[in-house]
Design a protein around this nucleic acid. Structure first.
Ligand SMILES: [Zn+2]
Ligand SMILES: [Zn+2]
Ligand SMILES: [Zn+2]
Ligand SMILES: [Zn+2]
Ligand SMILES: [Zn+2]
Ligand SMILES: [Zn+2]
Length: 995
DNA sequence: GAGTTTGAAACT
DNA sequence: CAGTTTCAAACTC
């Protein structure tokens, strides 16, 4: 946005990173901490010099946020530096044996991870550091850990500590940033040499430079970059990366730290530790998540007592936890699927990777760059959002809400899960991410199962589900990351520079397409990426484990052509892909790309296999639901295979063809299209209803659901990530995962009402569409109506809205929403009190939700990553997927279709159906998404309204991005109309009106 | 393992 | 939105 051209932005970021960073990402920063923001800004700016402290201090909360950033940065920086050092060493080695260096790193990472898992999270970290023994990694983690612990503790305790921390971070950050910049230049040179610093550098400075002078895109550069990534990248990059990384990592780490601190703060850690150890790797991963969750939980717990007390930090911590969770989840996924993911030393080392990736991508392809930039921008926005939330959380007790939710989750989870508290906590977190509170226990179980499944994902379905989960996790992570990055960027510019640049430039995703062409060249380099991959290449795409692996040659695994990417998973060891960017390292890039793709096709990452829930199915019959109900979402288009071979997606998914298939001569052994059509007819009515948003569900589920729904829906909405969108809907509805994901937000609500557990389907109905719309909305740029929304206001409004919601929706809310002043973070204070919690959630969940990932990422990053940022999906999938997964891989993805029917969950019995799809039918605004406002139905309600967050930086107003859209919901039974404000993700921020 | 076939994804 | 190209998996040999 701000920057006309990414390049310029990048350049700015790079240069500014030290001092000016803010300017570049003025929006972010400004927005973020308009008031206090300054602090944030300071942070950013400060980084260079001062970093730390300022933020922190100013306001505990805000500071906390800033601090977090700072912390993260510092951590990142430290870690980065350390890493760098390691990397350097490695690089040197790498010169000899790049692979080895990487491996070492990866190993370290693994160690770290493992250790972490074994040990309590916090402790884990701390321990891990020591334990990790291996130098770089250990240090890396250790630093972060320590910092985290300290910081976290500090944060938890008070911002003060953070502030103290900050300095370090800041100091480190600043220098680092500068250094990085310089490095960048050098790097460039180095790149020429063949090193790779570029990525980071590129991202930051180079990118900028490139932008200025020329695009770095050249494929060659890309290649070189890639190579660098693989090999040199660490060393050279490190410096540069530091800045970049520092940002992302900083966030992540901060989060991590927060989490750790939380853990530390909470006694749970110990428990966590125990659990984690017991768990197997995958389980470990989970545990990790759990631990984090626990941490979070702990925080929440505190909050529980004092709910809010947790403070921003707590909230942040929570966030961090969440992120971690996500990350963990991802990690789990990754770990399960690919040990490699973790392993990738580079990734871990690079933690900064994302930036690098982004930069690389950019360099690789102008289009890519654009995309990345766009993503980065988006991220920034998200980050902003995230930031806000954190602040909020930090600021006010309000944060409680999340915690409370968390607590609830924890409780539920705990109960459900035998795992130790820590584990449970983790689980909770995971669940949250996953999305379903109601699912919690089940979800937990599911989660585990999922992990397992993931590891084994053989069936495409399973994979998908997993993917979803992973994706969700990713999204979360991404969001978190993005947020973190954004935050970093905004504040610090330096680190963010990577992200920021891209972001700012943010080119539109459109350009991304181009990437392909260029990408090819890079492939060669890619090959370098991992020799291991080659192994995989060998033959079957399926690893011994049953995990699918890709063998992409030209797409860098950033297109749907890549099964890994399409599944929302990061490529792992087994993958034989060349020039792969689908790695945690490149999280930012991955996310960006994902977003772009989603923007084009909201359902792109949605599970391909959906269970059509018919009324029959929905209801009691779920069991009855004939397998037939499970179908490929889009159907196949087979012309020659007669749907008898895996060429057919339907067949491959072990599902019959459906009316959606355009296959010729269908002979699908799982069900011929014709047959399906015939059966469908009977159902169709129901289907229609559902689609229409009708009653189907209502009858059975609604009752509870409705109750819940209202709240839940909203909550859900909140939960929903924009990304989820398509997929999510179904998932959301059914899936607990979303609830979980949203859980934080929802949790409140859930907490509020047991029913909440039900899950929230609310969005369900809408989900499908909504997501799309949301996606469209994502297109922020497009959004026209830019309301200056203050995050603050949002939150507040939101809160109000929520309140309103339950009883009487009111148009007012809408107005409020409009008010949103995301940027207002500063205002946070105000917000803090009341709605902050909600806001937080919202923020968290919302676009950025993901944010969690990043911070945490750094440490776990590698871990988590496996699953890619995907976004929301996982969330959805979460519940359902979980359910499905558990039992049988079979489930896989089946999600209910977009339609609200989400019920699928139903499948069982558990409670069923809580889910809900709420009776509320979503009247999607014009698909266009964002812009159109009052679209559909009730003239009264104005759905489609877009809300754009504007921040004021440095006195300048910046558009943060499209924040929310009005979506009209109509109660199927009562026909009551409610206008919800949903974020891009589709999350419901608040209810605007009711009729 | 190379080469062919296939249909989704990407692109125009 | 249709047509074409690109892509990587599935399949064949
Ligand atoms: Zn791939
Ligand atoms: Zn792969
Ligand atoms: Zn790959
Ligand atoms: Zn077919
Ligand atoms: Zn089919
Ligand atoms: Zn067929």
């Amino acid at each position: 946005m701000l920057m006309g051209s990414p390049q310029s932005a990048e350049t700015k970021t790079t240069t500014t990173s030290d001092s000016l960073s803010v300017q570049e990402s003025p929006c972010l920063f400004s927005d973020l901490s308009p008031i206090k923001p300054v602090k944030a800004a300071h942070v950013a700016q400060g980084f260079p010099g001062f970093n730390s402290p300022p933020l922190v201090f100013t306001s505990s909360r805000i500071s906390s946020n800033s601090e977090t950033f700072l912390l993260k940065r510092p951590q990142d920086l430290l870690s980065s530096k350390e890493e760098i050092s390691c990397n350097d060493d490695k690089e040197k080695k790498s010169a000899d044996d790049p692979g080895e260096s990487k491996k070492s790193v990866t190993q370290l990472c693994r160690v770290f991870i493992t250790d972490a898992h074994k040990d309590a999270e916090i402790k884990k970290y701390a321990q891990a550091q020591p334990c990790s023994s291996s130098g770089c990694v250990d240090e890396y983690f250790a630093d972060p850990v320590e910092l985290d612990t300290v910081h976290s503790a500090d944060s938890a305790n008070a911002s003060l500590n953070q502030s103290s921390i900050l300095p370090e971070s800041s100091a480190t950050g600043l220098p680092a940033s500068k250094n990085t910049i310089k490095f960048d230049d050098k790097n460039d040179m180095g790149k020429a040499a063949g090193t790779e610093v570029k990525a980071p550098l590129i991202l930051s400075k180079q990118a900028q430079e490139d932008l200025h002078g020329k695009p770095a895109f050249d494929v060659k550069s890309l290649n070189s970059e890639e190579q660098q990534r693989d090999g040199q990248w660490p060393t050279d990059v490190c410096p540069t990366i530091e800045s970049d990384l520092s940002v992302d990592h900083a966030f992540q780490r901060q989060q991590y730290e927060d989490a750790s601190s939380q853990n530390a703060g909470g006694g749970q850690q110990g428990g966590c530790d125990s659990t984690p150890q017991s768990l197997s790797k995958p389980s470990q991963i989970v545990q990790m998540c759990e631990d984090h969750g626990e941490n979070l939980a702990t925080i929440p717990c505190r909050p529980v007592g004092n709910l809010i007390l947790c403070d921003p930090e707590a909230s942040e911590n929570q966030r961090g936890l969440r992120r971690r969770c996500l990350q963990f989840e991802e990690a789990l996924l990754n770990t399960n699927e690919n040990s490699a993911g973790f392993l990738d030393p580079t990734n871990e080392v690079t933690t900064s990777r994302s930036p690098a990736t982004v930069a690389e991508l950019k360099s690789l392809e102008s289009s890519h760059a654009d995309l990345i930039a766009a993503s980065s921008r988006r991220q920034v926005i998200q980050s902003r959002t995230n930031l806000y939330p954190p602040q909020y959380s930090g600021n006010s007790p309000l944060s409680i809400s999340k915690p409370s939710s968390i607590g609830l989750h924890l409780n539920s989870i705990v109960n459900a899960v035998p795992v130790t508290c820590g584990a449970t906590a983790r689980l909770k977190l995971a669940e949250d991410y996953m999305g379903v509170q109601g699912m919690k226990s089940a979800s937990v179980m599911n989660f585990h199962s999922l992990e397992k499944t993931k590891s084994c994902l053989i069936s495409s379905n399973v994979v998908e589900k997993i993917a979803f989960i992973a994706e969700d996790a990713r999204y979360k992570i991404k969001s978190s990351i993005a947020a973190s990055s954004a935050l970093c960027e905004s504040p610090h510019t330096t680190e963010p520079s990577n992200l920021l640049k891209p972001i700012e430039y943010d080119t539109t995703p459109h350009d991304k397409r181009k990437l392909n062409s260029e990408e090819v060249d890079s492939n060669e380099e890619y090959s370098q990426v991992s020799p291991k991959k080659k192994r995989k290449k060998t033959s079957s795409t399926i690893d011994g484990d049953g995990c699918k692996r890709c063998n992409c040659k030209k797409t860098k695994c950033l297109k749907l052509y890549c099964d890994c990417f399409a599944a929302g998973l990061y490529c792992a060891e087994p993958c034989a892909c060349q020039g792969c960017f689908n790695k945690p390292e490149y999280e930012d890039t991955v996310l960006e790309i994902r977003q772009q793709i989603e923007s084009r096709n909201p359902l792109a990452f949605a599970p391909k296999i959906v269970q059509h829930v018919t009324e029959f199915n929905n209801r009691e019959d779920r069991n009855q639901v004939p397998p037939s109900s499970v179908r490929h979402k889009r159907g196949c288009n087979c012309k020659k295979s007669m749907c008898l071979k895996k060429y057919c997606e339907c067949y491959q998914a072990n599902v019959g063809c459906s009316s959606g298939c355009r296959c010729d001569g269908c002979k699908n052994v799982y069900g011929k299209k014709e047959e399906y059509v015939a059966t469908e007819l009977g159902v169709t009515k129901e289907m229609v209803r559902e689609r229409a948003g009708e009653e189907k569900f209502e009858g059975i589920y609604n009752e509870k659901l409705e109750m819940v729904a209202t709240e839940e829906d909203f909550l859900q909405a909140e939960l929903y990530d924009l990304h989820f969108t398509p997929l999510t809907p179904s998932f959301q509805c059914s899936s607990h995962g979303r609830a979980e994901q949203k859980s934080q937000l929802l949790s409140r609500r859930y907490l509020q009402s047991p029913e909440s557990d039900l899950t929230i389907l609310s969005s369900c109905a809408n989900n499908t569409k909504a997501p799309e719309t949301l996606n469209s909305s994502d297109m922020l740029p497009q959004s026209k109506e830019s309301l200056n929304v203050g995050s603050y206001d949002w939150q507040l409004d939101y809160n109000n809205m929520e309140v309103m919601d339950q009883f009487s929706p009111k148009g007012d809310a809408v107005a409020n929403i409009c008010h949103l002043t995301p940027l207002s973070d500063p205002p946070l204070t105000a917000m803090a009190s009341s709605s902050s919690s909600k806001m937080r959630e919202w923020k968290n969940t919302s676009p950025v939700q993901l944010s969690p990932g990043t911070g945490y990422v750094s440490s776990s990053g590698s871990l988590c990553w496996r699953s890619s940022p995907i976004t929301p999906m996982s969330r959805f999938g979460g519940t359902k997927s979980l359910q499905g997964l558990n039992p049988n891989s079979g489930f896989c993805d089946i999600l209910e279709e977009d339609t609200p029917e989400i019920l699928k969950d139903c499948a069982t019995p558990r409670n069923s159906v809580k889910i809900s799809c709420p009776n509320w039918k979503r009247v999607s605004p014009p698909k266009r998404h964002s812009r159109e406002l009052g679209s559909s139905s009730s003239g009264d309600l104005k759905s489609g309204r877009k809300f754009i967050l504007q921040g004021i930086m440095m006195g300048k107003s910046c558009e943060l991005g499209l924040v929310a859209i009005d979506i009209l919901y109509v109660h199927r039974r009562t026909m009551r109309k409610v206008l919800w404000v949903e974020n891009l993700s589709g999350m419901q921020l608040g209810r605007c009106l009711e009729n």
